[in-house]
């Protein structure tokens, strides 16, 4: 070890920025897709139809009991086969880990977002439901205009916190040789033999970004919970 070579990092910055861009992109797509699919799953889990509720619960529990890494590899192999089945092509199309990761993370995160949304919906309370029904709103209107707006406001901090976790979890795709932020740093680290500089730099960037993001979430939580929970405001 002969001192830190910071120039390695400056030289690699454009390459690292590309990796970070992929990481951010995958995080955003997976968060939005995951919340959308997760909301549908949550409604299915709360459905009075036992089969619908049971299938949704089974899917969520399966995803939540298996390591993300295993799921990433599962989908890496299954997505091409699934596309072949859907399109009826003769051989599985080449998808590549970069693109299969989008499917993986949407489907995987949906299970986690489902549980958050479900708790959010339950937190709104049966009284709101009755009051809205009493006004003559139909089930969908109750959901769209009364329940979900309140639920999403209540669970926004938790959703954002989950998105921060997702941002970190995306780094696991580097094990499929994808050039996300960690993957980009890993490739430089190996090429130049500069493991220490690269990984410390990556850790620092994540630390700064994630700490800042969670600080913002906490601040939002503080300013928006005053008055609503006088018990905890003390």
């Amino acid at each position: 070890m002969n001192g830190l070579d910071l120039e390695v990092i400056t030289r690699a910055l454009p390459w690292l920025a590309q990796g970070l861009q992929y990481t951010v992109q995958l995080t955003c797509v997976a968060a939005l897709g995951g919340i959308a699919l997760g909301t549908i799953l949550a409604l299915a889990r709360l459905s009075s139809h036992p089969v619908v509720a049971g299938v949704a619960a089974g899917y969520v529990n399966l995803m939540r009991s298996v390591p993300l890494l295993l799921v990433i590899f599962w989908f890496y192999f299954l997505v091409p086969l699934g596309l072949q089945w859907v399109t009826g092509a003769g051989s599985p199309p080449r998808v590549g880990a970069e693109r299969s990761a989008y499917v993986t993370f949407i489907l995987f995160e949906a299970a986690y977002f489902c549980e958050i949304v479900r708790a959010g919906i339950v937190s709104v309370g049966a009284g709101q439901q009755s009051a809205a029904r009493a006004l003559g709103l139909d089930r969908i209107q109750v959901l769209v205009h009364v329940i979900l707006p309140q639920a999403f406001r209540n669970m926004l901090p938790v959703l954002l916190t989950q998105a921060i976790i997702l941002f970190q979890d995306v780094s696991l795709v580097s094990l499929l040789n994808v050039t996300d932020f960690v993957g980009a740093a890993g490739k430089i680290a190996q090429r130049d033999g500069r493991v220490v500089e690269m990984y410390l730099f990556v850790a620092l960037v994540y630390l700064v970004l994630c700490s800042a993001a969670s600080a913002l979430v906490r601040r939002w939580q503080r300013t928006h919970s005053i008055g609503r929970h006088p018990e905890t405001a003390r």
Binding site: Q168, S171, S174, V196, A203, L207
Partner: peptide, 17 residues
Amino acid sequence: LFRNIPLIVQFFLWYFV
């Protein structure tokens, strides 16, 4: 510190760095 760095990076820090 331990919450805001991805687990895989923490593994690399322990093992390689």
